[in-house]
Design a protein around this nucleic acid. Structure first.
Length: 575
DNA sequence: GCCGTTTTCGGCCCGACTGTTTTCAGTCG
């Protein structure tokens, strides 16, 4: 198999780690490798293919002559001699020490030179024996911290679904908003950017000088441990989850600059600061400056305005071309939750849902939807009590009867039909032909080869009754990777024959993800943003799907359920 | 190692907190 972009990025990150612990004297060389890794991870093109086509790698940002040569070496030989040389020079396990918060390259070198520490086990032993605190630059407290961090390592590397920290984020926000002297409270960081997972929470507060908000923060009942605590910053770890929360306090006049800074992403900030420096400006969390003169900082708009740019919504701030688009006046008009006129994927008690058809209809109408497709499972999915053709026929009658009794809202007759391992569908065509909408999905045989899995999905799409492919990659965040699929072929095929791909809004799915959604619309693929609700409450999950779509530069026109039922029906029938 | 409307050298985002120091290095975000 050809080497993937992710693998190349990982190689450069490893090289950067090794250089750090080795004591590379030039920190910018290390940063250059990390920059390259980041660029490569965000690339929408396959490097191995670019090498094969002899394309100019140096045209890529942050990739120069040396790195281009190294990429070619990796693609053509599967290895990087520079990396192997450094691996030989550095004990295996030394770079691992970088994972311990509080340990950077300088301290790791000192540990190695003076105590002969070469891995985590050595480090833990030395700390327990009290040998660390005898080193210059280390003390008893550092030794204790290191010991605790080693124990917490596994927990620390965990990321959280954004959706699962929402409740805590909101609780902290309203708690802080009630404190004396506090003006505004915003949860910034990746949370504000609607990233699918967050590593921690960054909370920004504007408050009167000398307010005690930081003290109040660390006194919150959910705080288990205080990592650091000053007047303008504090970091804590929460009980039970181990979620880290960082608080920053700034004066009102710096709110915009601070909000921008702490919203990130880091890559977006660095790119904007680079632009600032090129124009003789300086941006920090207190404002935007020319020399000592402060040009603004009360609002985010004021920051972007200095560059002749409109405000960029947080979902786009990943340095994936949004700054260039903003400069050119070509930012997308992103889809909003309000653009969605209905929901095209949900379940009822007929299979594995917890609410009846009537209850789901009422709930969807209460959300302001114009329509809701009932798409229960087909019988192959026995764990979900999937329906056979007869059961589907009975449901069709029930939905027709419901629609006959109600005006101003429409239930669509649908199914989430299983795609069998050879790409056939789990219900006969004559059953599918009676439905308004057919959603097809893979729920089994995740381990097929890339070739077979791709063929399977393409064949299912070729059935002219199929309108939407649900959760196209099958990934479950943090639990199951996507099945092996030639996603480029799937996108091209979907665009060619007019099958829509789903953005599934379940927080652990978000499938397609932001980057694939963007790749899809760039190829002209239509999307459906669906809740896949298994209860009335889950109909509200649609906002997570809409947010991922926004992160993928998706506009309303790209999404079939931004259309009224009249227009959607025309589109579905045109398949 | 990258990069260029200060272009082939000399920069590279920038400020806060901790711990150990007695004025600051290291680390982090």
């Amino acid at each position: 198999m050809a080497v993937t972009n992710g693998e190349i990025a990982a190689i450069f990150d490893q090289l950067a780690d090794l250089l750090e612990v080795e004591g590379e004297e030039n920190p910018f060389r290390i940063r250059a490798y990390r920059n390259a890794a980041r660029v490569i991870r965000g690339l929408d093109r396959n490097l191995a293919q670019m090498v094969a086509k002899r394309e100019d790698l140096e045209a890529l940002p942050r990739i120069g002559h040396e790195l281009a040569a190294k990429i070619r070496e990796i693609v053509e030989t599967g290895r990087l001699r520079t990396l192997e040389r450094h691996r030989r020079a550095v004990p295996r396990g030394l770079a691992e020490l970088l994972r311990v918060p509080g340990l950077g390259p300088k301290r790791i070198q000192r540990l190695r030179e003076q105590l002969g520490i070469e891995n985590l086990r050595d480090l833990e032993k030395a700390a327990r024996e009290g040998r660390l605190q005898k080193l210059s630059g280390f003390g008893a407290k550092t030794e204790q911290n290191i010991l605790r961090e080693i124990e917490a390592l596994d927990r620390r590397t965990r990321r959280f679904l954004r959706a699962e920290v929402e409740e805590m984020a909101e609780a902290l926000r309203s708690y802080l908003a009630k404190q004396a002297g506090v003006d505004e409270v915003v949860v910034a960081g990746s949370y504000r950017r609607w990233k699918e997972t967050v590593g921690d929470l960054d909370i920004l507060v504007t408050a009167a000088p000398n307010s005690a908000v930081s003290d109040a923060f660390i006194a919150h009942e959910a705080v288990e441990r205080v990592l650091s605590h000053g007047d303008t910053r504090a970091s804590v770890v929460l009980r039970h989850t181990g979620l880290q929360v960082d608080l920053r306090v700034v004066p009102q006049q710096s709110f915009g600059a601070a909000l921008h800074y702490f919203t990130g992403s880091r890559a977006h900030n660095i790119a904007l600061r680079r632009m600032a420096r090129e124009q003789g400006l300086k941006i920090n969390e207190y404002g935007i400056f020319r020399g000592d003169r402060r040009l603004g900082g009360e609002t985010e708009e004021a920051i972007y305005r200095q560059f002749g740019m409109p405000w960029i919504t947080p979902e786009l701030r990943e340095d994936r071309g949004e700054l260039q688009a903003a400069l050119a006046g070509e930012l997308p008009e992103l889809i909003t939750l309000e653009d969605l006129k209905g929901d095209l994927h949900c379940h009822t008690t007929a299979t594995d849902g917890s609410a009846s058809l009537d209850e789901m209809a009422d709930a969807a109408r209460a959300l302001g939807h114009q329509y809701l497709a009932i798409t229960d499972h087909s019988h192959h999915l026995t764990v979900a009590h999937g329906q056979n053709a007869e059961a589907v026929a009975r449901q069709i009658e029930a939905i027709d009867a419901w629609n006959a009794r109600h005006r101003g809202f429409r239930l669509l007759k649908g199914v989430e039909v299983d795609i069998l391992d050879d790409g056939r569908l789990d219900l006969p065509d004559q059953t599918l032909a009676r439905l308004d909408i057919v959603v097809a999905a893979i729920h089994s045989e995740f381990g097929l080869s890339r070739t077979k899995q791709t063929q399977r999905l393409l064949r299912a799409m070729d059935n002219p009754k199929v309108h939407i492919i649900a959760h196209p990659t099958g990934r479950l965040i943090g639990r199951r990777p996507a099945y092996d699929l030639d996603i480029d072929r799937v996108l091209a095929h979907a665009a060619g024959i007019g099958v829509a791909l789903e953005i599934n809004s379940q927080p652990e799915r978000l499938d397609l993800n932001d980057e694939l959604a963007r790749a899809a619309i760039e190829q002209g693929v239509l999307l459906a943003i669906s809740s896949d609700a298994h209860s009335t409450a889950q109909l509200g999950l649609l906002r997570h799907g809409a947010a991922q779509a926004r992160r993928g530069w998706v506009e309303a026109a790209n999404v079939i359920n931004s259309r009224s039922w009249t227009r959607l029906r025309k589109l579905l029938r045109s398949r």
